[in-house]
C-alpha cells in the first residue's frame, strides 16, 4: 500500500513539474490569470463583507468574524480542489476525441491519470496565501486548542473527499453523456450558495446542501469545529456523508468505464 502511494506520488510530482514548467513558460498568461483570480476573490469578499457587516443580529452563532473565517476556509477548499483536479476540465476532450483510449492502456490507474495529473501552480499560490490569511485571522480573533485544530484538519480532509467525489462523478457523467463543463458549472453555482454558512438558509435548503449536494456541510463542519459550534452528531453525519459519496462516485466511475464506447478513436 505504502509502496503504491509512493509510486503514485512520484508520478504526480512528475506531472506537477510539467504543469509548473508550462505555467512558468507562459509567464504573462499566468500573471493575468492570477490577477483575474485575485480580483474575483477581492470583489466576492467585498460583496459579502458589505452584506454581512450590516447584520445587526447574530445568525445561529455566526457574527462577522465567523463569516470572514468561513469565507477564507471556503476559498481554501475550492482553490485546493482547483489546484488538484484541474485536469478534469480536459476530460471531455479526451472522451470526444477518443484519447481516453491512450489513458486506459497506460500502466497507471486511469482515474488517477484523469483526475490528478494537471496540478495548477497558480491555484497553489492562492491556496498558500489563503492559508496564511486564515492562520493570521484565526490567531488574532479566536482561541483554538491543538486538539480542535487537529479535528479541523480531519474534517477538512473529509471535505476534500466530498470534492473528490464530485469531480470523479463529473468524469463518469462525461463518459456517459459527453458533457462535463455545464455539470462543473452547476456545481460551482451550488458552491456559490455554500459561500455563506448553511445555517442562513431555510431548513429545506440546509437539507439539500447537507445530504443531496453536500457542499454546504463540507465547509460548515470544519469551520464550526474552529469556532466551537460543532457537535458530535454533526461530525458523525458529515463523516458518513463524505465516505458514502466518495464510495458512490467510485462505483459510478467503474460503471461509466464499462459504458465507454471509444467512439471517436
Amino acid at each position: 500500500m505504502i509502496k503504491e502511494i509512493s509510486f503514485y506520488f512520484k508520478i504526480w510530482l512528475s506531472f506537477a513539474q510539467k504543469s509548473f514548467a508550462k505555467s512558468f513558460y507562459n509567464r504573462v498568461s499566468s500573471i493575468l490569470f492570477l490577477i483575474g483570480k485575485i480580483v474575483r476573490g477581492i470583489v466576492a469578499f467585498t460583496f459579502f463583507f458589505s452584506i454581512f457587516s450590516r447584520l445587526t443580529v447574530n445568525v445561529s452563532g455566526y457574527g462577522l468574524k465567523e463569516i470572514i473565517l468561513y469565507f477564507l476556509i471556503y476559498n481554501i477548499l475550492v482553490s485546493l480542489s482547483d489546484f488538484l483536479f484541474r485536469e478534469v476540465y480536459e476530460f471531455r476532450a479526451k472522451v470526444v476525441s477518443g484519447d481516453l483510449d491512450l489513458v486506459l492502456t497506460k500502466p497507471i490507474s486511469p482515474l488517477f491519470n484523469c483526475l490528478l495529473t494537471g496540478a495548477d501552480p497558480l491555484d497553489l499560490l492562492i491556496v498558500l496565501l489563503l492559508i496564511i490569511a486564515m492562520i493570521v485571522f484565526l490567531l488574532l480573533n479566536f482561541s483554538v486548542s491543538l486538539s480542535m485544530f487537529l479535528l479541523f484538519i480531519i474534517c477538512f480532509v473529509l471535505a476534500m473527499l466530498i470534492q473528490t467525489a464530485f469531480y470523479i462523478s463529473v468524469m463518469a457523467f462525461g463518459i456517459i453523456f459527453l458533457e462535463v463543463d455545464h455539470i462543473i458549472g452547476i456545481y460551482r453555482d451550488i458552491q456559490f450558495l455554500a459561500e455563506v454558512p448553511i445555517r442562513f438558509y431555510k431548513s429545506f435548503f440546509q437539507f439539500v446542501l447537507t445530504y443531496i449536494v453536500p457542499v454546504g456541510i463540507a465547509v460548515a463542519v470544519p469551520v464550526e469545529v474552529l469556532i466551537g459550534l460543532f457537535n458530535l452528531k454533526n461530525i458523525l453525519v458529515f463523516s458518513f456523508v463524505s465516505l458514502f459519496y466518495f464510495m458512490l462516485s467510485l462505483y459510478f466511475w467503474n460503471y461509466a468505464l464499462k459504458k465507454y464506447s471509444s467512439a471517436s478513436s
Binding site: R54, I186, D189, I190, V196, K202
Partner: peptide, 25 residues
C-alpha cells in the same frame, strides 16, 4: 439542456440566497 437548466438553477440559487439575506435584514 444542461446549459439552459443551469441558467434556471442560477435564478433559483440567487433567489434563495437573497431570500436568506432578507430574512435577517
Amino acid at each position: 439542456i444542461l446549459w439552459r437548466f443551469r441558467n434556471f438553477l442560477y435564478l433559483f440559487f440567487y433567489y434563495n440566497f437573497w431570500t436568506a439575506v432578507y430574512t435577517y435584514q
